[in-house]
Amino acid sequence: MDLLRRFALGEIDAFETLVRQFQGDIYAWIVRIVRDPGIAEDLTVETLWRIYRTRQQFRPDGNFAAWARRIATNLALDHLRRKRPEQSLLAEPAGAPQSDHLLQRETREKIQQAFRRLPAKLQVAATLALVEEQPYDEIANALGTSVGAVKLRVFRAVRILRKQLNHLGLGPGVART
């Protein structure tokens, strides 16, 4: 019997095969959004558990990867909504020189903090589109919306960020950090 049909019927072996096949992709998607490997692993486990729990809702002829990604995105969104916006990433960008200027570090932290204050939906769209440069149609599918709606969210995120950064005194030239 087809793997997806067996999974929909509740076969644990079929579900294990799907877990081993898709856990990497699900994790990669979530970690791009939440930016924390430990949290991304927890959310991946939660995603897989919810996939099994709602298996009757899945049509065996449907797209399992897209369905899994939608569940994962919703969990990541919930996580961002619960998370305090003041938390900022302290890790240095990959390849940053050891003697990074203090002002540049402060500027980066201000940008990160301003970004974290965005509404969760805008934050997810902007992270995936601008930071991770994922295709808009994939982002739209994962969010359960249209490409136009994703572009609008990205536009609104950039507009809010511009206002916040101006308010923080980071005007034109902010990219030269």
Binding site: Y27, F115, V131, V158
Partner: peptide, 25 residues
């Protein structure tokens, strides 16, 4: 500028899963 500032401000993420999550699931 905003887009470039965002890309520079966020560290590149390692998207490779480090361990098998099946036991936890």
């Amino acid at each position: 500028e905003i887009r470039e500032a965002l890309k520079q401000s966020f560290p590149a993420m390692n998207t490779e899963l480090r361990r098998d999550l099946w036991p936890a699931v």
